[in-house]
Design a protein around this nucleic acid. Structure first.
Length: 834
RNA sequence: GCCCCCGUAGCCCAACUGGCAGAGGCAACCGACUUAAAAUCGGUCCAGUGCGGGUUCGAAACCCGCCGGGGGCACCA
């Protein structure tokens, strides 16, 4: 049977017409402007990670914003006052590269891109509050980066130090540890090298314990994967510092070890080749040793990160001509320099216990150094493990101490406790904790970033720019050579650089580095709360009204970098009394990536499918729906596996439902078809749960099912005038408003209403959720033998006798007795024959 | 090398967290409507849940061991 209304041109779903019709209306009505302080609805802060303004939106943006929108639009329907802002992470290298390669002004290029991207977002019907947009490259924003920097500086959390830093030879700038991926520059995949420079750091390591421990508060609302990655990154380890004296040197040195129990097994020491200590020890050695060390250091410095990181690399090193004294037995331990010890972890030197550490054993075998077993270890069968000096395999697990004086016979844990106490009493050691996490290097030798608000004065040293002189604005790029050359381009802006010292008014120079753009994104979620405020970064009343973010949505690519920094900023701001919470993002949803035939699409790898073409062909709604329907949000979507054409057809089908309803708005649904009503209310109840669990693909499937059922009701059931049909069509419309704004707005309009975004999630009538009867499955020996229609409230005993009386059951039992009957009223009975 | 996640129909995915393997979609095929096509409507086909054990009255789900795919960490002492 076909629908009653003929499909004339005017009564057909036409996504182009709907987009043209409703976009201007929304631009007028601003349906997603967040309510003010007088709004008495409960508040909900839903945040999408803000984009870099790279130009037009791509498929990845389309997925992220489609999913973020489902959440934001759902809570609006639920009657919440939702804040769903957007802005631009607009400092960074692409603008600078456009300037270098094409002679464009970074400011103009960035603003043009923002305008283009905003227009795309509006077309895409993103439910953003357009009154709060921010862009981090604008002085009214980065002024507060500088303000926060100054606060951190005052607290000793921003400081300058010389050290070996990661250096990208192509971008000619330093990189934070987090920006080095597998030894390559995160941005351009160039092998990273090391360089000794004086740079600005944020002291994130002061917060290592809290950053780690507070992850526990997020474990139910953040992806476990992200929590694991952060834990791993912070890398807390418990051990001990042990003090070793060095022959011929006044100062003893500390080493860090997680295995103080194996101290008696130390047979040599290793010092990081690039550490000050190694250089110092070598400098006092004989000429041949000095020469060997210099040669070795030169090869180490020439090794790129990527080579250094490769495993199975043979151990290298040189003898430093010095000896350390083992505090527990007075033994002389030769001191070696090697690059397998890192200068910036622990104390840059280790005690080597080759029998019980594989790296030390590899080194010992290469250099022909002694190996002493101090731990007797057993394998899974209880057999003694072979001697590491012969097997070449260090025994690194549990064991019983041997050759260790007073520790002999103890197990690992007892030995660690005993030796630590012993060392502590002798002043030769103490319990210690170490972290993989390093301080956050924030200086960049690039133009397009926030100037560091420090003036260097010959007399006063580092002087922060006073708050009332902020922002320190970037000088115009005109006339500056922005090409990377290892020194900030700002150094050439002499008019800008030379300033009077804020302290003594003498001649001084501005710091010419700019901040890592991750500084910008570490607090932007707070700026949205009062984006035009001029006497502070954000309004604390607004912050306590909205923040922290209830739901954050973004890619897993930021699992470590951005999220860790934002958590650090939040804790620091908390400690300074600016916010009253310690975690910025209460819940996190990571969406997957969009691929095409198995290859990733991204701005760096090229866009295999152009979003604009998809939108032109299938419409905004169909693309958004496809993103939500493709699968669980955290899974990657392969565009070759999904069907925007199918989504479009479904939307057309849903749209015709609204078109075909003939009852009047406001008609009482209670008189409508009960079967359809029950289906509608069950769908509404289930979909609410599904949305809150981010099961958007299932929500779409349930909505499709409801559309199918309603279609049947119109064509071959109670007909288009039945009030239950209107109720169902309205439910479909509200559910679709989460995914397909244009289509649902038009449906809502056809149904005689306006402003679907605020329609409100229909109330579920609990009575309609329970069926009069349920089907009970009766199994014999696990196989289904009968089905019974029973009341949902049926008792166990009644159901048991009903099942046992079933003729199908009697037949299946075939005379055999009954051993057990499992009854799970009202849905299942399993009869176990004797 | 270590840690984590995932294997259900030709494909993308559901399955009330231990109770009838199939909700939804894609693709394919058949039919209705049509002069015809498109659109629409109706229908059909298709797996026993990667493999092998175990627990249980009952396992896609829980446990153990493999295989395959994806991701993270990787000289951090």
């Amino acid at each position: 049977m076909t629908s009653a209304t003929p499909d004339t041109d005017e009564s057909r779903y036409d996504f182009r017409a709907l987009e043209a019709k409703w976009l201007p209306v929304w631009q007028e009505t601003e349906p997603f402007r967040a309510g003010g302080a007088d709004d008495d609805r409960p508040s909900k802060y839903v945040l999408d990670m803000f984009p870099y303004p790279s130009g037009d939106l791509h498929m990845g943006h389309a997925e992220a914003y489609a999913l973020g929108d489902v959440i934001a639009r759902y809570w609006v329907q639920r009657g919440f006052n939702v804040l769903h802002p957007i802005g631009w992470d607009s400092f960074g290298l692409p603008a600078e590269n456009a300037a270098i390669n094409r002679g464009l002004d970074p400011r103009g290029w960035t603003e043009d891109n923002i305008a283009q991207q905003r227009a795309s977002m509006e077309r895409y019907a993103c439910s953003f509050d357009w009154t709060r947009v921010l862009a981090t490259h604008r002085p009214e924003y980065y002024r507060w980066n500088q303000w926060i920097f100054t606060r951190l500086y005052e607290k000793g959390l921003a400081y300058r130090k010389p050290s070996q830093v990661n250096w990208c030879p192509k971008d000619q700038t330093v990189l934070a540890n987090e920006q080095v991926v597998g030894g390559l520059c995160e941005r351009c995949d160039t092998p990273v090298t090391k360089k000794k420079l004086t740079q600005w750091y944020f002291k994130i390591t002061d917060y290592a314990d809290r950053l780690l421990d507070d992850l526990d508060t997020l474990k139910d609302t953040w992806p476990s994967k992200v929590i694991a990655m952060q834990r791993n990154w912070i890398g807390r380890s418990q051990g001990a510092d042990v003090v070793f004296t060095i022959e011929g040197r006044d100062q003893p040195i500390d080493i860090y070890t997680t295995r103080p129990d194996t101290l008696h097994g130390a047979t040599f020491m290793v010092v990081a080749a690039d550490s000050d200590l190694a250089a110092e020890l070598a400098s006092t050695a004989d000429a041949a040793t000095q020469e060997a060390f210099e040669a070795y250091l030169a090869t180490v410095k020439g090794t790129t990160e990527i080579d250094r990181l490769s495993t199975d690399r043979p151990k290298t090193g040189v003898f430093l001509g010095a000896y350390a004294i083992n505090p527990v037995n007075g033994e002389k331990l030769p001191m070696w320099a090697s690059d397998y010890v890192l200068a910036d972890y622990g104390h840059g030197a280790i005690m080597a216990v080759p029998a019980h550490d594989q790296r030390d054993l590899d080194f010992a075998r290469t250099m022909d150094l002694p190996v002493r077993t101090v731990l007797a270890c057993l394998d899974e069968e209880g057999q003694p493990l072979p001697d590491p000096s012969e097997s070449g395999v260090a025994t690194t697990g549990e064991g019983t101490l041997v050759n260790s004086g007073s520790l002999d016979g103890l197990d690992k844990a007892a030995a660690i406790a005993a030796i630590t106490a012993e060392l502590e009493a002798a002043g030769a050691g103490r319990v210690a904790t170490n972290y993989r996490l390093r301080d956050w290097l924030i200086s960049r030798q690039r133009y397009w970033g926030t100037p560091i608000p420090i003036v260097h004065c010959a007399d006063c040293g580092e002087v922060p720019v006073p708050d009332d002189q902020l922002p320190v604005e970037l000088p115009a790029s005109e006339g500056l050579d922005l090409k990377p050359k290892g020194q900030s381009p700002l150094a050439a802006a002499t008019d800008w650089v030379n300033v009077p010292c804020p302290n003594c008014a003498g001649p001084a120079k501005r710091d010419t580095d700019t901040m890592d753009t991750f500084v910008d994104s570490s607090w932007y979620f707070l700026r949205y709360l009062s984006p035009t405020k001029t006497d502070g970064p954000f309004d604390s009343a607004e912050a306590s009204r909205w923040a922290p973010v209830d739901q954050y949505v973004g890619g897993v690519t930021h699992a470590i970098l951005h999220l860790l920094y934002a958590r650090f900023f939040t804790k620091a701001l908390h400690d300074m009394g600016h916010v009253n919470f310690e975690e910025p993002f209460l819940a996190l949803l990571n969406q997957g990536m969009v691929q095409m035939d198995g290859s990733t699409m991204s701005k760096s790898r090229g866009n295999l499918v152009r979003l604009s073409e998809q939108l032109d062909e299938y419409g905004v709604d169909a693309v958004r729906l496809t993103m939500a329907f493709a699968g669980p949000p955290e899974d990657d979507i392969d565009w070759a596996d999904v069907s925007p054409a199918g989504s479009m057809k479904f939307l057309a089908r849903a749209w015709r439902l609204a078109r075909d309803v003939t009852s009047e708005p406001g008609v009482d649904p209670a008189t409508g078809d009960v079967v359809l009503r029950s289906h509608t209310h069950k769908t509404l109840a289930e979909c609410a749960q599904l949305v809150e669990g981010f099961r958007f693909n299932v929500v779409v499937a349930r909505t499709m099912e409801l559309v199918n059922v309603t279609r049947k009701a119109i064509d071959s059931g109670p007909g288009p005038a039945d009030p239950a049909v209107r109720e169902a069509a309205e439910a479909v419309t509200v559910l679709l408003s989460l995914f397909a704004p244009y289509c649902s707005e038009d449906m809502w309009d056809m149904l005689g209403h306006s402003n679907v975004a605020h329609a409100g999630y229909p109330a579920v009538e609990p009575a309609l959720l329970v069926d009069d009867t349920v089907t009970c499955v009766v199994q014999v020996a696990g196989k289904v033998r009968d089905r019974l229609e029973v009341a949902p409230s049926i008792g166990e005993d009644e159901l048991r006798s009903l099942a046992l009386g079933s003729s199908a059951v009697v037949k299946a039992l075939n005379g055999a007795g009954v051993r057990t009957v499992i009854v799970r009223a009202p849905k299942l009975v399993n009869i176990v024959p004797a």
